[in-house]
Design a protein around this nucleic acid. Structure first.
Lengths: 335, 335
DNA sequence: AACAGCAACCAAAACGTTTTGGAGGATTTT
DNA sequence: AAAATCCTCCAAAACGTTTTGGTTGCTGTT
């Protein structure tokens, strides 16, 4: 370890007190032009830069935000982090990141680490928001904003997409195009967001008086392969369907490929839609339809909300639900 | 701000000195069982947890690593971060992240912020490693490991993939399959990694005595659309090619789609290979060939190397080049 | 009986800042 | 000419730890 020069040495070299050096560095208080010049010269000469740790200790402010996510993989979360980052950068905060793989113990551990690191606020994204999370957050005396998940109106702020609504909306768009025979490919039962989308889909059908064979609502694991696999099984059961909705693009692409491999025409025989909008949507020759929502904006707004809570003294509580857009592209047709 | 209880109060409540409380908390030194119990009871009761800032100030250790990346977008970097994270977690370090969009001023700024935050080491990924970066790193008295880029043997450690070699290797694989007429789709000239791959491709041809019409070596911008576009232009120039290599999957997919839209058979007429291996490779019905390398391992090794440098006193210098695998899938055929 | 060694603890220094309460001198006001 | 004000600066306290150097009293050795 190099020994860094500290404020005391600068003060000595400049023949002033450390208070004056501090004032010069932070532009606070009044300092005579000549002494300021002198101090600045010493700073320049010595390459002094302040020890932020000491400053933070004295100020009781760290300008640090903690972000806890369950995964880094996929298109969404990195974009979200990007958004968070932008907002923090604009406000001179720094970002501490932890990835938990959705393991509760790891989540708890990182809440504690972050707390003892004195972060000023925490952004939290998990796969499913549970009781334990609520308890955890309510026990912690620093602001927390939950991302990508509702918190069930318990005074914990969140910003998320409305999975239920856009899934229902997309379903109804297809119904509006004349579709009546649907199949659905959901994600693993552990994913709340997938369950919500599935619920939206079901309600969309129900409210339009359309029955669904429960065998035609299946669960994959978000991969392209599982989309293919589930579609294979759907086709084995029932060939009369005219539209397939998958909760994500990967499975939608898998389903699309499967259908085409069966020499069934997309979109003329079967329309395909993914409740998602990743690069995959534009990868195939036949552009996939889907729902677009901005993870980057979500991150930005979440961070903004958190900063607002940090500034404010009273614990304010806000729920933000972001908009979406349905993009019908080549994979969808009128009936 | 809540007032947190501090070690002094704990000491008072337990009727001991703060030194003893510190010893109990850190399991250092010897403490009588009975006093330990008493102190632990007070800690439990008050919910005391230490102020890491103060500890770090006293210890002159932050257990903090800074990661500076030029972008969060894409499949690679998030995986890399994941790898970094794993390694750091195992060693009880925390991760501070900044994203610069490749802007030099932003990079410099974050080096300084991180330094004054007293990070113990910095992982640095940039689009192109320049003079300025070398100067920057050599001026800074803390260990730095560069990721995804060579540093030109100047005592700055790095861990990267060997873009040149795998590109050449892949090219020669295709030559081995009988291909003689190539086209190439590179990235923007600003991307070193793309340029390296292009160089590998060229040398692969040259060493096998194959000429390349320079019009058939083109540059896109990494997007699917630009791959399509460049392929369109290639086909307009010369239809006799039998293999196309693109520096990334996106452009390879674009090229693939374009070729098929021209009713040219892949792989029978033209083989397609991307020097990459993202989800896109498995998205189309016809699985794309490519080169696989693990970003996650890169992150992990980079972080490991950095930690090693932090532990060790002498400035050690290491260059790590990670292995790759070439996957020939459906998009490639013998000639 | 004198002393060495050790367990258990404490007071105070050190870490490097910001901030506070004043002090000294110059300048303005009355 | 005295009083009030302002500018400039300083010494010291505060932030909450870890660590150092010692002290105390006890045990065992010679």
């Amino acid at each position: 370890m190099k020994k860094d020069i500290n404020i005391k040495e600068v003060a000595k070299k400049a023949g002033v007190s450390i208070a004056t050096v501090s004032r010069v560095f932070n532009n606070s208080g009044t300092v005579k032009e000549s002494t300021r010049k002198k101090i600045e010269a010493v700073i320049e000469e010595t390459g002094y830069y302040p020890n932020v740790l000491a400053r933070e200790l004295a100020e009781k402010k760290t300008h640090l935000i903690g972000l806890i996510v369950h995964s880094m993989i996929g298109e969404g979360i990195p974009r979200m982090i990007n958004g968070v980052n932008e907002m923090l950068e604009d406000n001179d905060y720094n970002l501490l990141i932890a990835c938990t793989n959705g393991i509760l113990e790891s989540e708890i551990k990182h809440f504690e680490i972050f707390r003892s690191k004195r972060v000023e606020g925490i952004l939290f994204a998990t796969r499913e928001f549970k009781e334990e999370h609520r308890d955890l957050i309510q026990k912690i005396p620093i602001p927390v904003v939950v991302l990508l998940q509702r918190t069930d109106k318990e005074g914990i702020s969140f910003v998320t997409f409305d999975n239920y609504t856009f899934a229902k909306d997309a379903t109804e768009k297809l119904i509006g195009l004349g579709h009546r025979n649907f199949a659905f490919i959901g994600g693993p039962a552990t994913s709340v967001n997938s369950r919500e989308r599935q619920r939206g889909f079901r309600d969309g059908l129900k409210e339009n008086g359309i029955e669904l064979d429960t065998n035609l609502s299946r669960n994959g694991d978000f991969t392209i392969e599982s989309g293919y696999q589930q579609m294979e099984e759907i086709l084995a059961i029932e060939k009369e369907i005219t539209a397939v909705i998958a909760v994500n693009d990967g499975m939608a692409i898998g389903a699309l490929n499967c259908i085409q491999d069966h020499d069934i025409a997309v979109p003329n025989d079967i329309s395909v839609l993914g409740l998602d909008d990743t690069v995959l949507a534009k990868a195939s020759r036949l552009k996939l339809s889907g729902v677009h929502y901005s993870y980057s904006k979500l991150g930005k707004q979440g961070a903004g909300l958190l900063l607002k809570q940090i500034e404010s003294d009273e614990a304010l509580f806000e729920e933000v639900v972001l908009p979406y857009e349905i993009h019908l592209r080549e994979s969808v047709n009128k009936r």
